[in-house]
């Protein structure tokens, strides 16, 4: 077995995009050994209690607790490759989405985070299909209204037709999701001499909700977040990327039918859905294997 090499990866995502659920499911998979060809846990150090706590919630089919602002944790795991001949120590900072909001809004981050960013070679970038804010133009809405009217539908009521409400002043909260994520990525990609980011794994969370669309994660991203997709493609020479569809929870735990389906699985890990290049159907460690260049043998 080789000497472990430390590989630090940033976990980036806006609020409620599945970052903590991912770490919870990952904690279970690497410890249980249930998923063939996944990374295996060697040691978890002093964050074991915290990871065990969130993994327990995950195992109990509960929504994994959103990270509290005051309890951000750097998750350190020593993992071995499936064949056991390579060991990597990964560091995943479990930060709240609000922390990333502050980054793109204020164009600043903490000195502590900066040090971590200067040492990180990979990034897990989380997007959630239910948390996308799209730039909807008035022009589009007017066109749709016209189409509805042409089709014989209800027209805009007379009382509203002449009203010109005072526009709301712009503020940064109005920025669409694609803009926010590109702003975050540009801090790294445009300063490669400072931040040695070498790979980005985009995690499209709650993939169970998108399976019915029968699209690849790449196709979904290019359709739903075109600005982010173009930016990633335009920057791929500097920072290669892959896109994964991941459902750490495996389904809708609020839906009794879905819940029953998941509870019937032989192994808890079987409820995990992972779609992407070079990965097994439940191997949630696959994005980390690619980021660390381990385990794809």
């Amino acid at each position: 077995m080789s000497k472990p090499s430390l590989s630090k990866h940033l976990v980036v995502g806006l609020p409620r995009t599945g970052k903590t659920s991912f770490i919870a499911a990952l904690g279970h998979v690497v410890e249980s050994g249930e998923v063939p060809n996944s990374l295996q846990l060697v040691d978890m150090g002093d964050v074991r209690d915290r990871v065990n706590a969130i993994s327990k919630e995950w195992l109990s089919y509960r929504e994994v607790d959103r990270t509290n602002f005051n309890t951000e944790t750097n998750v350190v795991m020593k993992l071995s490759s499936p064949s056991g001949d390579k060991v990597v120590e990964i560091l995943l900072p479990d930060m709240t989405g609000e922390s990333f909001e502050l980054q793109w809004k204020n164009r600043e981050w903490s000195r502590e985070y900066d040090e971590l960013a200067r040492e990180s070679s990979g990034m897990l970038l989380f997007v959630h299909p239910d948390k996308i804010v799209e730039p909807v133009s008035i022009e589009e809405v007017v066109q749709i209204e016209a189409q509805i009217t042409d089709a014989g539908g209800a027209s805009v009521p007379e009382s509203q037709a002449g009203v010109m409400p005072k526009p709301t002043p712009w503020n940064r909260d109005f920025a669409p999701t694609g803009i926010q994520l590109v702003e975050l990525l540009q801090f790294f990609v445009n300063q490669k001499d400072v931040y040695p980011l070498a790979r980005i794994a985009v995690i499209v969370s709650a993939w169970d909700k998108l399976e019915c669309l029968n699209v690849t994660p790449e196709a979904w991203l290019s359709t739903t977040l075109p600005l982010l997709d173009q930016f990633l493609r335009a920057s791929r020479n500097r920072v290669p990327f892959r896109i994964y569809g991941v459902s750490a929870l495996g389904g809708d735990i609020e839906d009794p039918v879905d819940l029953q389906r998941m509870q019937k699985e032989d192994k808890p890990s079987n409820r995990i859905i992972v779609v992407g290049q070079d990965c097994g159907p439940h191997d949630i460690s696959a994005p980390i294997k690619w980021l660390t260049d381990v385990g794809n043998e």
């Binding site: 133009s137 008035i138 409400p165 712009w170």
Partner: peptide, 26 residues
């Protein structure tokens, strides 16, 4: 393809009054 902008928020701000989010109708 879009490959970046150092003034992304400046562009966004200029788009605002054409967006539904502004609350405008025109």
């Amino acid at each position: 393809r879009f490959a970046g902008s150092s003034t992304l928020m400046g562009f966004e701000q200029r788009c605002h009054l054409a967006r539904l989010r502004s609350g405008g109708t025109k």
